[in-house]
Nucleic acid binder design. Structure first.
Lengths: 198, 198
DNA sequence: CGAGTCGTTGAACGGAATCAATCGTCGTGG
DNA sequence: CCACGACGATTGATTCCGTTCAACGACTCG
């Protein structure tokens, strides 16, 4: 269960699907029938362009809604392929969802809030990727993801985090070690503790 | 006028504000009174952390809504500073906006659609920033921004585009030249024409 | 038990950042 | 009206840091 799924579930029942690496959830050009939320695993959204170049539009992990925009489109503008060994998805019928939304302004407002929150986070992330230094970029990321106790709860593997930060995983490991050595963070089993400097 | 402003204007009247470089639109901790849309110029959203590090959350340009999430918060979680020489903003009273939204499900749905669209674009952008090669990153960006005629209309200066792509502006110029030399693009006065390969 | 992947470290290379300098343009103010 | 400053656009030279290639141990899952 996760935020996105929880809100949508209050609107209508959902179905769970379990898929495996390489499976297509949908293909570019398909008619939009379902809206999906990732419960477990990793799904890549890919846009195929005319000249053969594929652009990766999103690497969706836990709690991500697959192609929010497909709610408002009859056709998928990209393909979704499972990238992890397995993936579990929550499916909602698109038309029922739209109808239910229209009939429930309160939940619609919650959706607006959820989306607004996502946008803020994505924007912050974009700026973090403008930081040249790998170490600083990582540290800013931790600051952003940290809770009130300055803990970063790790939901992704280090390798996946490295990818999201736009770093080679080796660089990520090296700088993680370095940050620890400098006393700026403490690595724990499934979290990272940030240390306040002064 | 722009998309964001247009939708909000149908809900309620707005006020225009003109500001200058260095002006604060609001400060972290301030009570949220207005929602702003950038009409012209560049505004930086900055979060100040306890240990003095400032994280840039967003560099807002034309058509961007400043801190969508502030709609659902009583206090600003970041400061907004004008970064260009001048900036023109459209202001909407937050409480009136919320009330108007609740009373108009159709427009609320449009907002959901607008946000969904933004999210998709931001996600695509994030993935583009994972492309290591400057040239490929730029080309993917152009593909993403291109209209049906494979034209990219330039709203930002090259320097600003470079920044958004996370590149030094020199690198941007060099690779722009290179892409043109390779016949992949044609530079025009206020647009770039993409050439389909094969 | 073996395949696959994560986590980790080392060495070398390459490409982007950085520093630096020039030209053109635009706006401003004396 | 022109001189001046500010900034965008452009190119060259050099440096540096992140990528890449490579290799290994640990762990999980079938």
């Amino acid at each position: 269960m996760n935020d996105s799924e929880a809100i949508l579930q209050r609107l209508m029942p959902n179905k769970k699907r379990r898929l495996h690496k390489g499976d297509h959830l949908f293909r570019q050009g398909d008619h939009v029938e379902n809206i999906h939320v990732v419960c477990q695993g990793m799904v890549k959204l890919i846009r195929h362009s005319i000249d053969g170049d594929d652009i990766v539009l999103q690497v969706a992990v836990q709690n991500d809604i697959l192609a929010e925009a497909s709610l408002f489109s009859d056709m998928y503008h990209c393909s979704a392929v499972v990238h992890s060994q397995t993936a579990e998805l929550s499916c909602f019928d698109r038309n029922s969802l739209l109808a239910a939304l229209k009939g429930d302004p309160d939940i619609m407002m919650e959706i607006v809030a959820l989306f607004a929150h996502r946008i803020r986070k994505l924007r912050a992330f974009l700026e973090i990727k403008n930081i040249r230094s790998a170490k600083q970029r990582m540290y800013s990321y931790f600051q952003l993801e940290a809770n009130a106790k300055h803990e970063v709860h790790l939901q992704l593997t280090h390798k996946d985090m490295a990818y999201q930060l736009g770093l080679a995983h080796e660089t990520f490991y090296r700088n993680l070690k370095c940050l620890e050595k400098e006393g700026k963070i403490i690595r724990k089993v499934s979290s990272i503790q940030l240390i306040q400097s002064v």
